[in-house]
Each structure stands twice: as structure tokens, then as C-alpha cells.
Design a protein around this nucleic acid. Structure first.
Lengths: 141, 141
DNA sequence: AGCCAAATGCAACTAAGCTGCAAGTAGTTT
DNA sequence: AAACTACTTGCAGCTTAGTTGCATTTGGCT
């Protein structure tokens, strides 16, 4: 996607969920759309450099996006959250994430789908399922 | 299990992995064996009350147990780790964990097994898989 | 242009866990 | 049994990721 396309998509998404199109929201959302993998608040701030909003604003912006369902919390790694655009997920599950035990990197396996598990437990109502895989990535294998 | 049985099992486990049988290790491991659900360092300390070791010792003890493969990190919730005895897991996966979106509690679904996924990606070698389910628990449904 | 609820920035705070180092102790050696 | 020593523990203080309170600014509306 070109910069221009990202900008259009950013504004369209913000409009769709009725959020004010402010500077911080545009740049944070654009950063997530540009990234191939889920990003942490810290990574987003670094990538934005001098045009990054205050870190508190980044945290609050991401939280707002999650509540509006434009962005998902993809996974928690080393006590920090990684976020990704919500369009990469279905209602009942996000694609699996793969973490390499050697280099520590995590990748999205968007092509992979795992059937929603049937719980053998009475009374538990399953709404969503999250799968994480661990092993060696192509670079480390 | 009776208190006496827990004590025997605790010492047997420490012996098996060649760790010194110290006071803190005995009480922390016993607390994990007694619990029905994974426990955080904080929860263990609270349960042990005045006989709890220093909190740094609890953290280091849990880390030691994980390295020795006596205990596993079951899941990360709200930025804190929950631990459980390793015997509840197989080589390639832990049982799924279920988190209730209403009350926030997490339960082990030890009766449930999910086949190890086959990755359609060339070059990724999958060693372990982790499944988390979200929904409503019997109390909240 | 003017209004105002919503958004932002700043400073200070919190929770969970980690580090460095001095003191204690389990298991071994003599 | 006493001594030894490498592994453990406790304490104080630090770090990281994220949160809260509050004063200031601004997007979208009139």
C-alpha cells in the first residue's frame, strides 16, 4: 500500500467507527496498517520518531481502538502487548501466532485456520479461541 | 492429597531434578501442588502467610522450577504469570486454559485435548502448541 | 467565529518483577 | 562432628510497561 492509500484507509476506518480523526489517531493507526507483524506501543513510538505522540496518548489511543474493535490485542510477550488491525481476524478467532524459541520473534500465520474447539465441559460457553505455536522459524531452523 | 503426601511428593520431585531441599522450595512447590488452578507468585505468598519466603525468593524459586521443568508457566494474565506443576502437561502441549470474559477467572481444561496443528508454512518447525479459550464460565453463563 | 465534550500532554504513580551484594545454609569433605 | 564451599536467601533499590489526575487544547458542530 502506498502512503496515500494508507492515509485514506486510516480515515475511512476512523469514520466507520465514529472516532474523531485526530493527529495521534491517524499516525498510530497508519503505523499498524503499514506493519507486517503486530506492534507494541513502544515499537510504534520508535517508528514514528519525532512525529510520535506522547506515550500516554499512544497507550490510550490503542485502548480506544481495541474498544472500537478496529484493532486487536494480538498477543502478550514478555509482559508487553502487541496490537494488529482487527481485519486480520474472524469473529471467533484470530489467526495463530508463531513464536520462535530461538530468536524470540513472533509471526502471524494468517493462512492457517484451526477449527473452534468443542469443550467437553458442561456449562462453559466458548466464544473465542486463541492458538499460539512455538518452535523454530525458517531463519533459525 | 493429605499434607503428609504433599510433603513426600514435594521432596521426591526436588530430589528427582537434583535441587536442594530448602525451606522456601518446599513451601512454594507444596503450594503449587495443593492448588487446583495455576497460581501467581503473589497468590502463593498470600496463601503461605507468615511462612512465606521473601518475594524475591518466590520469584527466583519459580524461575528455578521452570528451568528444571518441574513447573510450567501456564499463562500470562494482566501482566502477571501463573504457574502450575509440569505433570499436568504433555511434551507438545499444555491442556487448554479457559478465561471467563465476565468474572475474569481462568480455569484449566485438563480433560480437553486438541490435536497439534499442522503448519501450512514451509520452514516453520512447530514444537509446542498453546490454546486459550474465552467465553462464559458456568457461574456467569 | 464560538462552543464544548472529547482528546492530549505532562508529571507523578503503580504493579510485577529483576539486580547486586552481603549473609546464611544444604550437602559434602575431612 | 567440625569445616568447607558453592548454592540460596533476604534486603534495598532499580526497571519496565502501563495508569491516573488534572490542566490545556482541539475536532466537529452550530
Amino acid at each position: 500500500m502506498t502512503t496515500r492509500e494508507i492515509e485514506k484507509r486510516t480515515d475511512a476506518l476512523l469514520n466507520a467507527v465514529k472516532l474523531k480523526r485526530t493527529g495521534p489517531r491517524r499516525v498510530v493507526l497508519a503505523a499498524l496498517l503499514r506493519a507486517a507483524e503486530p506492534q507494541s506501543a513502544e515499537q510504534i513510538a520508535v517508528k514514528l520518531g519525532t512525529s510520535a505522540p506522547n506515550k500516554v496518548t499512544v497507550y490510550r489511543t490503542l485502548e480506544t481502538f481495541v474498544n472500537a474493535d478496529v484493532v486487536h490485542k494480538a498477543f502478550l510477550q514478555k509482559r508487553t502487548w502487541y496490537y494488529e488491525p482487527a481485519d486480520k481476524c474472524t469473529d471467533t478467532q484470530c489467526h495463530p501466532h508463531f513464536t520462535c524459541t530461538h530468536c524470540g520473534d513472533t509471526h502471524c500465520l494468517t493462512e492457517m485456520s484451526i477449527p473452534l474447539a468443542e469443550s467437553p465441559y458442561k456449562g462453559f460457553v466458548v466464544h473465542r479461541q486463541q492458538v499460539r505455536l512455538e518452535g523454530l522459524c525458517p531463519d533459525c531452523a
